[in-house]
Amino acid sequence: MSNKLTGSVVVIGGGISGMLSALDLANSGYYVYLVEKGPSIGGVMAQLDKTFPTNDCAM
């Protein structure tokens, strides 16, 4: 194994989990490539009407 590490991460999937992984890494000093198949990020959570427990809008 080469001794040189690359300080970047590829995150595959722009749903709630992928987006937050990307944000955490970018804010911690790593370069992030966020790859999403669809035209926009947000995933299934953006489709939900409201979420427990406060029944807040999921947007």
């Binding site: 590490l5 690359t6 300080g7 937050l20």
Partner: peptide, 27 residues
């Protein structure tokens, strides 16, 4: 959702741990 959010940060931590020597090199 909350467990997915925890997974997200946990994965960021694990991915970062593996690269900690290269932190701040590409930003």
């Amino acid at each position: 959702i909350p467990e997915s959010v925890l997974d997200a940060s946990a994965a960021a931590s694990a991915a970062g741990d593996a690269l900690s020597r290269a932190r701040d090199t590409l930003t």
